[in-house]
């Protein structure tokens, strides 16, 4: 490309163009560098903001489960625990659902149905997260507290370990409800990624498997999944990355408590939800605000790692 542009002409327009070209190229390159600076300053600003809290509590900030604004003692453990547990449960619920949808859309659905159903799933991803919060709070929470949680608590009553995992009281809000709402939110992302990578499988592979008499499921299990394994994991990581940082929906339904409880029906909080809730009550320059920014920094590190892995796994297949 570059050789073709530098055409040897001496006219006035060519000289004007020779100013325009470096200017435009410089502008494009500068914008690229701006994006790098944006992420750099994002990390730096969170770290600097969190520095007073990191200094005050040291590495213990990560493992301390104390969150007491009155005594000015802050620890990240409760929120980190809530963030990880809700996201992992959400993944466990979302992955089979997303796989089923992607399988249906690529192999089973009749042609005329693929587009409308695919669009519906994509629209699910476009619904603002605050709407999921309201829907979760006004629709899912009552269902959970009346129909789902009491039978589960009764069912596992007396069974060791499970008894503690599914302990009451059934308020409806809590870690499990937050995970369900998160799962609904990340299903479209995972399903769309899976569908896209499933479609990268060369038809001839599938045709030869069908040719020797494989059923649709056998083709999926023995041809499509092995071929797209890495990208499928990448798509799941992308969903995990989304779930980790989700704020508004979780804030509505998680119940917001500063304690770790073994039961998945108990209230908790996540990094994003505690930041959203406690930020308005934190004065500028206070230690509490610094602790919240430090939490933000931790969330950034966790989601950065997850998103980086996801991208490394996904990029080669979808770009090729």
């Amino acid at each position: 490309m570059s050789q073709t542009v530098a055409l040897p002409t001496a006219s006035l327009t060519a000289r004007k163009a020779s100013i325009g070209d470096p200017l435009f190229a410089g502008l494009a390159r500068g914008s690229g560098i701006l994006v790098l600076l944006l992420l750099g300053s994002l990390i730096l600003s969170l770290f600097i903001g969190g520095l007073p809290a990191f200094r005050r509590f040291g590495p213990g900030f990560l493992v301390s489960a104390d969150w007491d604004p009155v005594r000015e003692v802050f620890g990240a453990a409760v929120s980190v625990y809530g963030t990880v547990v809700t996201s992992v449960i959400a993944l466990i619920l979302a992955v089979p659902l997303a796989f089923g949808i992607a399988f249906y859309l690529t192999e089973l659905a009749p042609d005329w149905l693929r587009r409308p159903v695919g669009t519906a799933i994509e629209l699910l991803a476009a619904v603002p997260s605050i709407i999921y919060g309201m829907w979760g709070f006004f629709i899912i929470v009552p269902i959970m507290s009346q129909y789902i949680e009491p039978p589960l608590i009764d069912l596992f009553d007396g069974v060791p370990v499970l008894e503690d995992l599914f302990a009451g009281p059934p308020f409806g809000t809590g870690i499990f409800t937050a995970a369900i709402v998160l799962a609904v939110m990340i299903v479209p992302f995972i399903a769309a990624t899976m569908r896209d990578v499933f479609e990268t499988v060369p038809p001839v592979f599938k045709e030869s498997a069908y040719g020797v008499g494989c059923t649709t499921w056998e083709v999926m299990r023995s041809i499509v999944l092995p071929y797209t394994r890495v990208s499928v994991v990448g798509g799941i990581m992308l969903g995990l990355g989304r779930a980790l940082g989700e704020t508004m929906a979780v804030t509505f339904v998680i119940g917001n408590s500063d304690h770790i409880n073994a039961s998945v029906f108990s209230s908790g909080n996540t990094i994003a939800s505690i930041v959203a809730l406690e930020f308005p009550e934190s004065a500028a320059g206070s230690l509490k605000l610094s602790a919240l920014l430090a939490l933000g920094f931790i969330l950034f590190v966790i989601s950065f790692i997850v998103l980086a892995i996801s991208r490394m796994l996904l990029r080669p297949k979808l770009k090729a």
């Binding site: 690229g32 560098i33 994006v35 790098l36 944006l38 992420l39 994002l42 600003s45 969170l46 903001g49 992308l238 990355g241 989304r242 980790l244 940082g245 989700e246 704020t247 994003a272 930041v275 959203a276 919240l292 920014l293 933000g296 969330l299 950034f300 989601s303 950065f304 998103l307 980086a308 996801s310 991208r311």
Partner: peptide
């Protein structure tokens, strides 16, 4: 730049607020 832009695409929006 491509990598950073992809990370920003999925970065938690609450952190952008902070």
């Amino acid at each position: 730049v491509r990598f950073v832009s992809d990370v920003l695409l999925s970065a938690p929006s609450i952190l952008i607020g902070l």
